[in-house]
Simulated assay, not measured.
Amino acid sequence: MKVSRNEMITALSRAYEGAGHEIGDYEDAGQLVTWLQMAGLSGFDRISLPPRAPKGGATPRLVFENDDIAVLDAGGADVCEHGSLAAYLMHSKANKSGFAIIELANCRYPGLILRSLSMVAQLGV
């Protein structure tokens, strides 16, 4: 059976919404998994279906930072909740010094960050 990209995004977004994720997070989850699936990187194999509920109140915490390196603790949350934050932090550090390393620790489904990283790469870093 063939499924369109929009149908995959909508179905995944609804599944994550039903699991209790916030509005921006469940939309990101649908985009992240669909992008990986369409890129041939087995997006559906990287997540558990049905989706798990979000970690309530898990806010990212900056553990370490200097000019080139930062370590973020996601508090056990999904990449869809804090992956974009880590990717854009890397982008701003790389723009400033030409080099950046960001570690997103204690995070579920780390492979889903590839879409966020590709979006940052399209910005020219």
Rank of each mutant, 00 (worst) to 15 (best):
residue 98 G to Y: 02
residue 24 G to L: 10
residue 37 Q to R: 01
residue 26 Y to P: 05
residue 49 L to A: 14
residue 85 L to F: 04
residue 114 L to A: 12
residue 18 G to A: 10
residue 120 V to A: 01
residue 111 G to S: 15
residue 82 H to N: 13
residue 4 S to K: 07
residue 95 N to H: 05
residue 84 S to T: 12
residue 78 D to P: 12
residue 16 Y to V: 02
residue 55 K to V: 14
residue 118 S to H: 14
residue 62 L to F: 09
residue 79 V to P: 09
residue 70 A to I: 08
residue 88 Y to A: 12
residue 52 R to Y: 06
residue 101 I to Y: 07
residue 25 D to A: 06
residue 113 I to D: 09
residue 70 A to L: 15
residue 57 G to F: 05
residue 96 K to H: 12
residue 47 I to W: 06
residue 46 R to Q: 13
residue 81 E to M: 04
residue 10 T to H: 12
residue 122 Q to C: 15
residue 89 L to F: 05
residue 111 G to Q: 15
residue 37 Q to H: 07
residue 58 A to C: 00
residue 111 G to F: 12
residue 30 G to R: 08
residue 3 V to F: 06
residue 11 A to G: 03
residue 68 D to K: 09
residue 39 A to K: 08
residue 95 N to K: 15
residue 54 P to Q: 08
residue 12 L to Y: 06
residue 63 V to T: 00
residue 12 L to K: 02
residue 18 G to S: 09
residue 62 L to N: 06
residue 103 E to H: 14
residue 1 M to S: 05
residue 90 M to Y: 10
residue 120 V to D: 10
residue 3 V to R: 02
residue 31 Q to M: 09
residue 24 G to A: 11
residue 22 E to C: 06
residue 116 S to N: 14
residue 35 W to R: 00
residue 114 L to K: 10
residue 100 A to H: 05
residue 117 L to P: 09
residue 71 V to Q: 07
residue 50 P to H: 04
residue 9 I to T: 00
residue 23 I to H: 14
residue 54 P to Y: 03
residue 18 G to I: 11
residue 33 V to S: 03
residue 35 W to E: 04
residue 40 G to P: 11
residue 114 L to C: 09
residue 13 S to H: 02
residue 39 A to S: 14
residue 115 R to K: 10
residue 51 P to A: 12
residue 44 F to A: 00
residue 25 D to R: 05
residue 105 A to K: 15
residue 110 P to N: 11
residue 99 F to E: 09
residue 2 K to G: 13
residue 31 Q to L: 03
residue 74 A to I: 00
residue 119 M to W: 15
residue 12 L to D: 04
residue 29 A to F: 03
residue 21 H to M: 04
residue 33 V to Q: 06
residue 105 A to Q: 15
residue 18 G to V: 04
residue 122 Q to V: 13
residue 97 S to F: 05
residue 117 L to K: 06
residue 43 G to N: 06
residue 124 G to L: 04
residue 95 N to E: 03
residue 97 S to T: 11
residue 38 M to G: 05
residue 15 A to H: 01
residue 67 D to R: 10
residue 61 R to V: 14
residue 53 A to Q: 11
residue 54 P to D: 02
residue 89 L to C: 13
residue 20 G to A: 00
residue 112 L to I: 08
residue 125 V to G: 12
residue 53 A to E: 14
residue 73 D to H: 03
residue 39 A to Y: 01
residue 64 F to R: 03
residue 90 M to N: 05
residue 30 G to N: 00
residue 57 G to H: 04
residue 99 F to Y: 11
residue 43 G to V: 06
residue 1 M to Q: 09
residue 25 D to K: 02
residue 118 S to Q: 11
residue 87 A to T: 00
residue 120 V to P: 12
residue 9 I to H: 03
residue 125 V to N: 15
residue 105 A to H: 07
